[in-house]
Amino acid sequence: MKISTLLSISFFLIAIVLSSCGGSGKKATYKIEKASFNLEAPLFSGANSTQAEHKLDLSAIKKELGTDASEVKSAKLIKAVIYFQDSASTDLANSIVLSLAGDKVDMAQVAVANPLEAGKKEVILKGSSEAEIAEFFNQAMMYIVLDVDLKNDKESSLKLSANLEFELEF
């Protein structure tokens, strides 16, 4: 049986320049807030995939940093928090894996939480320090992919949202 997932309802993008003019390049923090994911019912136990399309907008950062900041040279996920919406909680799932994908960039797994702490509404994922993800930020768009390993079948949809924070170096 197949279920299609609807997603990507709203993005609130806040780009804040935290620091600049480091010795090796200019740094900035890029935040993706309230990225929405909807795993539509019926759901089955096992890994269920959902994804959100995210249009990148670095114009504010680049403007702040000046003309030197043309290309992202390195990027690191520094924070990834997944929120269970409505009455759902971490009790539903065994694990969550976060990946980034792009049409012109190779998919990269960037964070995982396994197992999930019981009875929580939010999950802090453990981010990879080695995943090479700079190239995603030189594209116009990327996909944020969540693999949610559900413990049991579920008859109602599951809504999640994600707050992600990346450190970019130009």
Binding site: G46, A47, S49, N94, S95, V97, Q109, A111, V112, A113, N114, K126, G127, S128, S129, E130, A131, D147, D149
Partner: peptide, 11 residues
């Protein structure tokens, strides 16, 4: 990548 060694193989 040590941070990703907990990713389940199923899925």
């Amino acid at each position: 990548d040590e941070a990703l060694r907990n990713v389940p193989l199923k899925g």
